[in-house]
Simulated assay, not measured.
Amino acid sequence: MTEPLHVLIADDSVLLREGLVRVLSEAGFVTVGAFGDAEALLTAAKTVPFDVALLDVRMPPTFRDEGVRAALALHAAQPGVGVLLLSQYVETTYARELLGSGAGGMGYLLKDRLASLDELTDAVTRVASGGTVLDPEVVAQLVGRRADPLAALTPRERETLQLMAEGRTNAAIAGLLHVGVGAVEKNVSAIFAKLGLDDSGTDHRRVLAVLTWLDAAA
C-alpha cells in the first residue's frame, strides 16, 4: 500500500490545529507535529521527516507574514516538500510572493475551504506532488488586477504613485503637489488598499506599489 503523507501544522489557534489534525487523519494523512508558531515548525522540520507543511499566514510574534516567510524558508531548505498556506482573508500580496518564488509544491487556501474535506485533501495531495494550489477567490482577484491594476486609482493617487516610482519621499511629494504631508499619507494608504497591498511592517508595500506602476506602464 502507498505510504500516507506526513504533515506538519503551524497555527496559533489551538482549536484550528486540533481540527486540522482530526480532519487530516480522517483523510488518511499522518500529522507528525502541530505547533502554535512558525519558528517551532521550522525547528521540527530539520529533524522530523514530512511531506507537506500547513501554515497559517499570520502567527506570533507579529501576526503579519510569519507563515509566508516560513514557507519560503522551507522550500529553500527542502525543495521537495509541499507547503500549503492558510489564510482567513484574500491577501494577494502573499499569493504573488509565493508565485514569484517560481517554486512548485506551493499552495494558498482560504480557511473557509477547510470545511470541505475533499478540497483540503486535494490541496494537500497536489502540493505534495509538486503542484501549485491557489484558492479560486485569490485567482479571481489576481486576474482582475492584471486586467488594469491602476483602474481604481484617482488622478491624484496616480500622480502620487508616479512620484513614488521616481523615488520621492512623502514630504517631497507634498511639496511637488502643493499639499500637506498628511494628504500624501492618505493617498499612499489609499493606493496600498486599492492595490491589495497588506501591511508587512516594512517598506515592502511601497516597492510593490511601484512595481505595479511600472508593470502597467510597460
Rank of each mutant, 00 (worst) to 15 (best):
R17S: 08
K186Y: 07
N170S: 14
F63Q: 06
A217M: 11
S101C: 13
V133G: 01
T47Q: 10
A171H: 07
G33A: 01
S13T: 06
E185R: 14
A44V: 02
T169C: 11
G102H: 05
L153G: 13
V57A: 08
L163F: 06
L98W: 04
D12N: 11
D215H: 10
L98F: 01
M59F: 04
V124H: 04
E119F: 01
G175R: 15
L211S: 12
H6C: 03
R22Q: 08
P60W: 04
G28C: 03
L153E: 11
D37S: 10
M164V: 15
R58W: 00
G33C: 05
L15P: 01
L214Y: 03
R156V: 12
Q141I: 05
L5P: 06
A183Y: 01
V181K: 14
Q78E: 12
A115G: 14
A73C: 09
L211K: 15
L16N: 02
L117S: 13
T202W: 00
D122G: 09
R145V: 09
K111V: 00
S25A: 14
A77K: 09
M164K: 09
I191C: 07
V184H: 07
L208N: 06
G201E: 06
A38I: 07
L110K: 12
A147T: 10
G102C: 07
S129E: 13
A27G: 07
R64Q: 11
A70D: 11
T31V: 15
A218M: 11
Q162P: 01
T212E: 08
D51H: 10
L55F: 08
V127Y: 05
F35S: 02
D118A: 15
T154Y: 01
V133Q: 01
K186P: 07
L142H: 08
D148S: 13
L86D: 03
G107Q: 06
G175N: 14
A171Y: 05
V83F: 01
D51Q: 10
A44K: 06
L55I: 01
N187I: 00
T47K: 10
T132M: 12
A44W: 01
A147E: 09
T154Q: 09
L110S: 12
V57E: 04
V30R: 14
D118K: 14
Y94M: 08
M1Y: 11
A128P: 05
R206G: 07
